[in-house]
Design a binder for these strands. Sequence first.
DNA 1: GGCGCGAGTGAGTATTTACCCATGCGGTGA
DNA 2: TCACCGCATGGGTAAATACTCACTCGCGCC
Lengths: 316, 316
Amino acid sequence: MSRIDPEPTLQDEAARAGWLYYVGGLTQDQIAAELGVSRQRAQRLVSRAMAEGLIHVRLEHKIGACLQLEAELARRYGLGQCRVAPGLGAGADPARAIAGPAAALLEHYLARAEPQVIALGTGRALRAMVEELTAQDCERHHVVSLIGNIAPDGSASFYDVIMRIADKLHAPHYPMPVPVISDTPAERALFHSLRPVQAVVALVQRADVIFVGVGQMGDDAPLLLDKFVTTGQLRDMQGVGAAGEIAGWVFDATGRYIDCDANDRVGGVRIDAGREAPVIGVAAGATKVRAIRAALTGRLINGLVTDEPTARALLA
Amino acid sequence: MSRIDPEPTLQDEAARAGWLYYVGGLTQDQIAAELGVSRQRAQRLVSRAMAEGLIHVRLEHKIGACLQLEAELARRYGLGQCRVAPGLGAGADPARAIAGPAAALLEHYLARAEPQVIALGTGRALRAMVEELTAQDCERHHVVSLIGNIAPDGSASFYDVIMRIADKLHAPHYPMPVPVISDTPAERALFHSLRPVQAVVALVQRADVIFVGVGQMGDDAPLLLDKFVTTGQLRDMQGVGAAGEIAGWVFDATGRYIDCDANDRVGGVRIDAGREAPVIGVAAGATKVRAIRAALTGRLINGLVTDEPTARALLA
DNA sequence: GGCGCGAGTGAGTATTTACCCATGCGGTGA
DNA sequence: TCACCGCATGGGTAAATACTCACTCGCGCC
């Protein structure tokens, strides 16, 4: 051998073990022998490969029932893009189910040769989508955040997906240097008067495609859990018909943004109804049905990635 | 439910079971319960999903050692594209290992918005590559075969990958309506004088990318096994230094096509050395090292997808 | 130097999966 | 009509895998 084997990293070993297991179909005994480690270590490497997302699994077959749901959703709500993933059973996190299909749809836009401006919201669903994304070089594209990245305590927001995706794609990226929710409308206005912020907002406005999560406004609304609103404020919004939220902007059951205190302080860019460019909602779960239906009804989103039970509920 | 569940097909059920197993991480017991079938049937569905290629597994982590090999191969042989997959251990079929990476590379070209002309050779490696390919709509691209598709007995050739890939991509496709190897040079010339054949040849000549297998010329050469040459002819070619073969065209250890009887009768298009457009060799295995090295040396190919042991051997 | 602390290891074991085989069901041809 | 064939089914069991636990080793801290 001409070169000294540089000590393979732990991830390298895990990747190799996972490769041998999932692609090669070897047993963990055989992997242990191949790598010269104990059987237990082989097992640990394999499960680490899975846990760290080194191994991606995708389903290459559209199940008939899902196709049908896609078609019906697209027709009913006039969607440009619609993906319905099979459900994962009662207990599972629906975000897991839709992450793969959502990532595949995003990759579809990433594959374009012309530089694309891709705007992203936040949330667990988008986070999972980015996890599933294949790393690739996309210097020509721009990823831009819809939503402020400054948490209430001044730190960078925790759920921000822009940095993660930029990391995977090596693409220029534009966080929105604005509080997620400002304390006052005046503070919000001040931030939005800054030139760098305006530049990011302008970028969002001409985005070629937008991916957003859809938040629900029940008693366990993400806005509440993340401490962006108080229980009292949440109650008030529920009182005036809040049904869901996109990028922090709260709307009612018809998909019209409601007039409330919080909406005057949201740092992110509001997605207006009936946009031309694709606005893809990535969301699933029984609790979100009302919010998603509202967003679809109001044409805040014109594309949807969801799972089977949610799709059925939306059509029911 | 508004619609009657149309009896899900067996494949649908298999896909769902595989999804629940590999993506959802459910046990086969849970899947059985979810689908309302017996444990054993769930097990069968899961293994069928795998066997039918409904589930695709890819490694999302470049192992350091492989990256290094890629860089060294690219430098040593001046390659435009180079992928090295981790080996799968002694017993396994190396074609399995390289199928995924090769498919990913091909998808890279398929993703282009401008219509591409993609030329393909044949062989087990390319066959496996196509199996791994994600089905998608590529009406804008053209896939064209490098190699004749008429078997010695007049039937369509068995290994032809064009039909399979066209099936997956829904792309216009151009088999080469010529015997793989004609009986006489005159017959070959006759076929090549036909206008439809010339059209296909012209298409190959302006292909944007070419994927080929690389055949070895040992005593178990594919050309012999597929009965395209006799043992005697093979010995003769070995005698004059045959090292490998691409699309049926036999070359020596320096990558120069040799002057032999078989080369006068090969139906397919010869790939000339030093082409501008990418010519990707997809090949791995200890027996093929000599052939691949020859093809690289002669610059018959300017891209390579192989596996780790083969890469090491090529650099040794 | 002694003392935890945490990460990693290998043995042992419970759970899960893959394979084998006897059985039954539906279709086919005599 | 009946014997036969192919094939899917589910029970059972051997193999493989995931998990638990006690232990060691290296490291920082007292």
